[in-house]
Design a protein around this nucleic acid. Structure first.
Length: 348
DNA sequence: AACACGGGGTC
DNA sequence: GACCCAGTGTT
């Protein structure tokens, strides 16, 4: 196992002089730390910066969040992606109230019982808010460790993953007071110096102990994941407008893509869309085909064919759990990014 | 172990 | 267009 007594010292000193400071969530309040850590999962700092203050203003503490409606939470999360994070955040706020009397626990193990909080996020909260000697292990840290110690393993391999946790734990500083700066340093080093491509080795505090650099292997470590093929999925949207200029939105189920968000009536095939339109008294000839929307997710390529129609007068009113929403009320609803773009191309 | 789950940044 | 990002939960 790699052991480097100087690793933590170097990192802490570097963070204090050259790390990132002044980010809105660099505070010791566990609620703020937790919220930021969830937002930052698989999401870059620049993206989160626009969402974090808005969300915190709406839900300034865990009680406010626990008492909110899921729709309010999702409306503030809309566009950020990975919406299970928002649903779990909401659930976890209620867990904090019900299971912990409204106060965040300081132990990593207890934090891990919260919905949406895995080991790394629990460790980040424990380290930043409670100065616990727990290690994070995110994409940045993995890259730093794989390079500094020339760890050459398959990222999909469970045993290799476990090895990374063990290495990360072995590097923790002895003094608990150093945990916030150390943890921030791990993230900062990976994000600003030990980047995936073109690492800035001359600026790195580990440059003279880095084994990947010594072996001229920074470009090949960490090893890449093997990426799977991304299947294409056709989708059909119906933009139905009533006499008041309102649009029909339907809340999506709690499972699957865009779970819990609001969307236009959405169909797997055109026949199903026609059937739905017919129930509102709209014949296929009155459906206007709009410009197709291509939207890439990590694991799917959505090819969306939007249709538009105006409700005839009079018209039948079929059983429908949708809601009619005016243009200026769209912002109150959590919409998937491509739908927000389609309905209001101006606010990108 | 593999897959589901968004959206954007970067090269 | 490919790869990655302050990952977690399900199967």
């Amino acid at each position: 196992m790699p052991h480097s007594p100087s690793f933590a010292c170097r990192l802490i000193a570097w963070q204090k002089t050259s790390g990132r400071h002044g980010l809105a969530w660099q505070v010791s309040d566990p609620y703020c730390v937790w919220l930021s850590e969830i937002m930052l999962q698989q999401t870059q700092v620049a993206t989160v910066s626009a969402y974090y203050p808005r969300f915190l203003a709406a839900f300034p503490n865990v009680h406010a969040l626990a008492a909110a409606a899921q729709d309010e939470v999702l409306a503030l999360w809309a566009g950020l992606g990975y919406y299970s994070r928002a649903r779990n955040l909401h659930k976890a706020a209620q867990q904090i109230v019900s299971d912990f009397g409204g106060t965040f626990p300081a132990e990593r193990r207890e934090l891990e019982t919260l919905c949406g909080v895995g080991r790394s996020t629990a460790a980040a909260i424990a380290a930043f808010a409670f100065k616990q000697r727990e290690t994070i292990l995110d994409g940045n840290v993995k890259r730093v460790l794989c390079r500094v110690f020339a760890l050459d393993g398959n990222p999909a391999d469970k045993a290799f993953e476990q090895q990374l946790w063990t290495v990360a734990e072995s590097l923790l500083p002895e003094c608990a007071d150093d945990m916030p700066a150390y943890t921030q340093g791990l993230m900062d080093l990976g994000a600003t110096v030990c980047k995936r491509s073109k690492p800035d080795c001359p600026a790195c505090p580990m440059t003279d102990i880095c084994q990947a650099k010594a072996q001229n292997r920074t470009a090949e470590l960490p090893r890449r994941k093997v990426s799977a093929a991304v299947p294409e999925v056709p989708l059909f949207w119906l933009k139905l407008t009533n006499g008041k200029g309102e649009i029909l939105l339907v809340k999506r189920p709690q499972q699957g893509i865009w779970a819990g968000l609001y969307c236009l009536p959405c169909f797997d095939d055109e026949t199903a869309l026609h059937r739905f339109a017919a129930a509102w008294g709209i014949a296929p000839v009155h459906l206007r085909a709009d410009t197709p929307v291509k939207h890439r997710l990590t694991h799917r390529l959505l090819r969306i064919a939007p249709f538009a129609a105006t409700l005839p007068d009079p018209h039948p009113t079929p059983e429908c759990n949708g809601t009619w929403v005016s243009a200026n009320a769209l912002a109150n609803h959590g919409l998937p990014k491509p739908l927000a773009r389609y309905l209001a191309p101006s606010n990108l």
